[in-house]
Amino acid sequence: MDFTRDETQEAIAQVATGLLDRDLEGDALWRAFAEADLLTLALPERLGGEGLSVTDVGALLTEVGRSAAVIPALATLGFGVLPLVALGDERQQGELLSGLADGRTFTAALAEPGRPFPAPPSVTAVAEGSDYLVTGCVVAVPYAEGAHRILVPTDVGVVLVQPGSDGVSLTPTPSSSGSPEFAVTFDGARGELLAGGPEAVQQLYRIALASIGAVADGLLSGATLLAGGHLATRQQFGKPLATFQAVAQQIADVYVTSRTLHVSALSASWRVSQGLDAQDDLDVMAYWIAAEVPAAMQVLHHLHGGIGVDVTYPLHRYYSTAKDLARLVGGASYRLDLVGARCSSI
């Protein structure tokens, strides 16, 4: 496959980079993304979007990761908009996605206590009229409090729940990056079925994982570029740090990790976009995120010396976000078990 971005993806990346270079933060940056129509790219043309794919939107998420921007792009686009377009009917899409131009956010519940990407989910949904009553507990739900809807995997499929509904309890939980994250308890909370069956749940998981991979790709690439600039300009014994053999070897190892993740993330995203079997690629990519990305970030901290742990220097945003993503995909041991199980079944 050709890993070069096409014209559309390049245009998306250039617009995103231009906004990210304006030193906007938080809500101001999110509003700028909305005003630039970056949040509606995946919407069907009938809703004013471009009908772009998971890979196309991934180009945007990669640039968000490359700047380590703390905005709800991954939660809204990767966990919300793309699954809604893939699974929702025309009525649901029209009602739910109409507010994206104004900065509406979404998120998904991808983990239960001790069970990342649970299959089958232990959260239950019981039909009552045209609605479903959802009961269960989920954790590590990013940006849940302000989300328009939470996409909840249940035993009957993916259900849409409003975070402010009766029967929904949100408990703030810590994240490494400081971005808002919640444990959510549903006690007969009323919701709407987005799509039924276990395949709908798996489709949500595939799109979410591919989107996580896009962010992680940009994250490690951006941190590597940051370290490379530091090593080229910081001098010791009258020479740039980059000229020392041990330093050059370590940054080269990180570069190899970064490029490997790039290939893995793009391959997984492309297969998801094309409707091909992507599980092998997603499992390998997720293991790389959980095991190799945090280790690479530790090396970059080491290469920066004391400045690397200074919270006024941007490297800490890359490392803390990388730890959040590694936790979100389930950790290295869990991901290695999945890869091993697939290898042993060949």
Rank of each mutant, 00 (worst) to 15 (best):
F244H: 10
S53A: 03
T17Q: 09
P240A: 08
F186H: 03
V54H: 05
L38V: 06
T55N: 05
R317V: 10
T8L: 15
G238T: 09
R31D: 14
G191P: 01
V256G: 13
K323L: 15
A295G: 10
L282C: 12
L110Q: 03
V329R: 00
T233K: 13
Q14Y: 03
A322Y: 00
A322C: 04
V168H: 02
T173E: 13
D277A: 08
T260C: 10
C343M: 11
A291L: 15
G114P: 05
V57M: 00
G213D: 02
Q274H: 14
W288N: 11
F79M: 14
Q92P: 11
D21L: 14
T185E: 11
G94P: 08
D337G: 15
T173M: 14
V81G: 01
S264C: 08
Q203D: 11
Y205L: 04
L194E: 08
Y255E: 13
E25R: 15
P174M: 01
P121W: 02
D102T: 11
L60I: 07
R206I: 13
T55C: 08
D102N: 12
A242K: 12
I212P: 00
P294K: 02
F186N: 04
S221L: 12
I207H: 00
T124A: 10
A268S: 07
D324H: 05
L110N: 01
A189L: 05
L220H: 08
R190P: 07
R66A: 10
R190Y: 12
A119L: 12
M285G: 02
T76R: 11
L96T: 13
V81W: 01
R327P: 03
G167L: 07
S211I: 09
D23Y: 10
R46A: 14
H148A: 13
Q162P: 15
G129K: 04
H148R: 15
A125R: 05
V284I: 14
Q9P: 00
G51I: 07
Y255P: 09
L97A: 07
M297K: 13
A101C: 08
F117H: 04
Y319K: 13
E95Q: 10
A16G: 03
V138C: 04
F117S: 06
I289F: 05
